[in-house]
Amino acid sequence: MTLLDFARGPALQAALIIFVLGAVWRIVGALTAPWRLVPANPREGALSPAVAALKGVFVKMWPHKPFQQAGLFTFVNGYVFHFGLAIVVLLFTPHILFIKGLTGLNWPGLPSNLIYMVAVITGASLIAGLVHRLRSPVLQLISRNDDYLSWLLTFLPVVTGLLATSHLGARYETLLALHILSICAFLIWFPFGKLMHAFLFVFSRGMTGVRMGQRGAEL
C-alpha cells in the first residue's frame, strides 16, 4: 500500500470516524447536562428566546466600538484566516469532490489559482496569529498546549496543500498523501480541543443571547 493509498483509505476513514464520534460526543455530552439556566420573568417587549439566541449569534460577529481598537488585530486577523480557511476548504474543487463523496452535496468551485492565493494569505495570517500569541503577555498567560497544537494542526494542511499543488519538496503523490494525513491529524484532534468552538460557539453565543435578551440588555 502506498502512502497515498493509506492516507486516502484507512487513515481518512479512521480520522473521520473519530471526528464524528468525538464531536457528537462532546456536543451531546455538553448539552444533555442539566441546563441550570436561571429562569427569569422576561422584560415586557423583550425578544423571544429564539430571536435573542439568533441575535446573539450574529451580533458577536463584530466587536462593539470600544473593543475595536484594542481587538483590531485579533478580529481582523481572525476573520482573514477563518474566511481564508472557509474559501480554501469549501471552494477548491478537489475539496468539494471530497465533501461530495462524503455527503453527496455539490457546488461550484473557484479557480485554482485564486485558491492558491487565498491559501497563501491564510497561512500568513495564521503565522501572524501565532506571533501575536507568543508576544502578548495576556495570551501567554491564558494559552494552553491545546492552543499551540490546534494552531499547528490547522497550519499543516494549509502548508502541505500549498506544497502539493506547487509540487515543492517531494513528489506530488507524497505531498498529497501528507496533505491528507495532516487533515487526518486535524480531524482527530478537532473534537478534543478548542477547534470545537466551530460548533460550540453557536450555543455559547445563543445562551448569552437568551439571558441578555430577556433582560432587554445589549448583547
Binding site: 486516502r8 473521520l16 464524528v20 468525538g22 457528537v24 456536543i27 455538553a30 447536562a33 461530495k100
Partner: peptide
Amino acid sequence: PLSTSLRDLGPALAGAAVAGAALGAGAA
C-alpha cells in the same frame, strides 16, 4: 475523483454519530 476517500464511509460515519451521541449522553 482523486481527492475523495477510497472508502465508502456513509454507514461508518452514521454509526460513529450514533455511538458519539450514546457516549455523550452516557458521559452526561
